[in-house]
Amino acid sequence: MSAGGDAGAGGRPAIVPFGDGALLVVLGERIDAVLNRRVHVLAAAVRAARSADPRWGAPVPAYASLLVPYDPLAMEQAEANERLGALAASAGEDEAVAEVEGELVEIPVRYGGGDGPDLDEVAARLGLAPEEVIALHAGMTYGVFMLGFAPGFGYLATLPPALVLPRRATPRTRVPVGSVAIAGEQTAVYPVATPGGWHLIGRTDLSVWDPRRDPPALLRPGQRVRFRPVDG
């Protein structure tokens, strides 16, 4: 299995089967802006190929890998592998991988109190004052690396090192919609009420997911996000 190596450093991406109807393209195994841009460039190339050849499914980008489903009733794995390998090779050379400034989305946040019940505990564990946690969190510009976990849930990175904490030991059974949370190097806004193990430091009234809106998700990969503290 070649999925173990980091293929991100200019090497050829590894393509491994993920079941009998999908391939996984592994570009690396880190949360890294350049790797992630390469994932989305390849996703765009697969979507373009799909519009001409419906045997491809809709690609699913993640931090450093891309799932490419195909119709096993119409395409054998060897053909899918060969075609995807060619796409990956040419997308890797694409100048679009060069850094571009994505659209900026500003998210107003009420930090702390009932809206961010973990703020004080997070501050204590990090050896910071709650105000310092807020200033650090709102002082960064984050990239949208991928959507996943729940409908419209955008994984935003990268948190400043001073805010990095592991997930909560015991996940909450219900995180309120709009909660602004941190975990590891990541931050996010919970788009729907769901169980969750991240630390809740604030809350926004901005709707990040509405299945009846077009597009339903506020966030999309490539955008930049800033959080702006507002009073409750």
């Binding site: 993920f18 109807g21 996984l24 880190r30 450093a64 890998s65």
Partner: peptide, 10 residues
Amino acid sequence: LVSLPMTWGA
């Protein structure tokens, strides 16, 4: 792992 896409049947 760094989160990656999942499929039905994984």
